[in-house]
């Protein structure tokens, strides 16, 4: 029994220790390999880096749909007005945050394929859900207002200057 407990505790520690590949030492990576199936199966491989290294900007996904009749429909998620209860809002928020986490500008980077699949997955879902002809997706970064600017009354938290857009592409029925 002691052996099982010790093994589990080792896995509990190694999970967050080796959670982020780019920040993991060779020793931590070796330890992770020893317990990888166990850590993955029990969902122990989380970094627990809540608001670390520091709280950053938030991200939204904007979509512009063209419907079969030519009408257009636009929206974004997370949408504070549309998603209740709050937990559901947070699920959509995590969809957009995950897209940003996966994003890398280098199209040949190892993780880029996962990002591309996620973008296509979101696009296909929107196309099917709305029976749309095409959809244009944009990742929007919402920077946090500097505390000095708020003190001086220069900006609000939702000031238009705090938003920056990254076009993700236009996807059509063929991409379904």
């Amino acid at each position: 029994m002691s052996g099982l407990v010790a093994f589990h505790l080792f896995a509990v520690f190694v999970g967050p220790w080796a959670a982020i590949r780019e920040q993991t030492s060779p020793l931590a990576a070796d330890c992770r390999r020893l317990v990888a199936p166990y850590v993955d199966a029990l969902y122990l491989g989380n970094g627990y880096r809540f608001f670390a290294p520091e709280p950053g900007p938030s991200h939204l996904v904007k979509y512009d749909l063209t419907l079969p009749g030519g009408q257009t429909l636009s929206g974004h998620f997370p949408d504070r007005a549309a998603r209740q209860p709050r937990l559901l809002y947070h699920r959509y928020f995590m969809l957009s945050e995950t897209l940003n986490t996966l994003y890398t500008p280098d199209k040949n980077a190892p993780g880029r394929a996962v990002f591309d699949r996620y973008v296509r997955s979101y696009a296909r879902h929107l196309l099917l859900a709305h029976q749309a002809a095409n959809v244009r997706l944009t990742l929007v970064e919402h920077r946090i207002a500097a505390i000095e600017d708020i003190q001086r009354g220069k900006v609000s938290l939702a000031d238009a200057n705090l938003f920056e857009e990254l076009p993700l592409g236009t996807f059509s029925e063929d991409d379904r």
């Binding site: 627990y48 520091e54 504070r80 708020i150």
Partner: peptide, 29 residues
């Protein structure tokens, strides 16, 4: 959980200069 939550923040300047909580509370989303 708390050990990694705490130590991972040590890399962030905002936790040292004291403005980290503003970055969390001032996040509109």
């Amino acid at each position: 959980i708390y050990l990694f939550a705490g130590t991972s923040k040590l890399m962030g300047l905002a936790w040292w200069n004291g403005f980290a909580m503003w970055l969390a509370l001032g996040n509109y989303e």
